[in-house]
């Protein structure tokens, strides 16, 4: 019996030593030598999940290593990010997150990490504008009419997918830019519920994700007033951008990006970045991005980091101005 336990202990020790050696020997040349985990903070089926699975397929094929997507929803992504920070910083744990990455630091009073310090932005995979939409029976036919109504206090309401959602941030930024007085925010549990409320005319407008909004616009259930990005969207070429409707410089987009916890060796990061870039440029990823009513993100490394930093700054300012706070 004692012999057996000794063998087991020796085995455990040996495996520890091996792991340590393996960790030390890790460099870009060997990477990846085992399976990679891509954590995402959302439930299966959503855009983040679909992008992660698409990317994982390329990792599998090109690196001959299994890439596993793990959905770990919770607390606006904080759970996933915390778990990723607890994992070894060796490049085998990556995070695919949305622009929520730039919102949590703005709306949460305390976070268990510092987004800019603790995460390395690798690549922005895709981005999409939102459409400012009203219900089919709404009295507002242009953005100007909506804004004019919003000048009288508490008259206009906007829906969103929840406190701290991109939809709320964008609408709040727009409302303050357009000098709307006390617009009423009606948070819902998700985008479909928010859109239903606008369709039914219970809430006046919403900054709706294109993927959800376009089919409803085409069916006449929603009426688009403007597009949140600086440019018009090819999906709705006749709809003006917010910027060209009298608010120059207004540009808001939702995005999805790949991150690694800080501490992963630079050469490994570069290898992942190159692979991701190659993956995004393949036809099937391009198709997937189009299916999601998005366009390729086309921002990598430092450039993506700059976008993240700028987003966090504007979101923090907007959250302070509109008193948006979680916890």
């Amino acid at each position: 019996m004692r012999f057996v336990s000794r063998i087991i202990r020796l085995g455990l020790l040996a495996s520890c030593v091996c792991t340590a050696l393996e960790a030390r020997a890790e460099s870009a040349n060997d990477y990846p030598s085992r399976s990679i985990r891509i954590d995402i903070p959302f439930t299966p089926g959503g855009p983040t999940d679909l992008l992660a699975r698409g990317l994982a397929k390329h990792f599998n094929a090109d690196w001959k290593q299994t890439a596993i997507v793990e959905n770990r929803p919770g607390a606006g992504g904080i759970v996933t990010l915390r778990v990723a920070l607890d994992a070894p910083r060796d490049g085998y744990t990556l995070v695919l997150h949305s622009d929520g990455m730039s919102i949590t630091p703005a709306v949460y009073a305390t976070l268990p990490f510092d987004t800019l310090r603790d995460f390395i932005p690798i690549a922005m995979l895709a981005k999409t504008p939102n459409a400012v939409v009203v219900g089919e029976d709404s009295p507002y036919h242009t953005l100007a009419e909506l804004v004019a109504a919003g000048q009288s206090s508490g008259k206009i309401s906007y829906a969103s997918a929840g406190i701290g959602s991109a939809q709320q941030m964008q609408a709040a930024k727009f409302a303050s830019r357009a000098n709307m007085k006390d617009p009423i925010h009606v948070p819902f549990k998700g985008t479909p519920e928010a859109l239903t409320a606008v369709m039914a005319g219970r809430v006046d407008f919403v900054f709706a994700p294109m993927a959800n909004a376009v089919p409803l616009i085409k069916a006449g259930k929603l009426r688009p007033l403007a597009i949140s990005s600086a440019e018009r969207s090819p999906l709705l070429p006749d709809v003006p951008s917010v910027a060209e409707s009298g608010y120059p410089g207004f540009s808001e987009e939702q995005w999805w990006g790949l991150f690694a916890p800080a501490g992963v060796p630079q050469d490994v990061i570069e290898k992942i970045e190159a692979e991701t870039k190659a993956a995004v440029e393949t036809d099937d990823m391009k198709n997937l991005i189009t299916q999601l009513s998005s366009s390729p993100g086309e921002a990598y490394g430092e450039q993506f980091g700059k976008i993240l930093k700028a987003d966090i700054e504007t979101n923090t300012a907007a959250a302070k101005a509109a008193h948006i706070e979680a916890k």
Binding site: T43, P44, G45, G46, D49, L50, P192, E193, L195, T196, A211, V214, P215, L216, K218, A219, K221, N287, L288, Q291, L292
Partner: peptide, 23 residues
């Protein structure tokens, strides 16, 4: 409008297939 998480997943599967759920 998905009724629950499972329906949301089925909608996601439709999206992968290039089908936009909608009216």
């Amino acid at each position: 409008i998905p009724g629950d998480a499972v329906m949301a997943l089925i909608l996601g599967a439709l999206l992968i297939q290039g089908i936009q759920p909608g009216p």
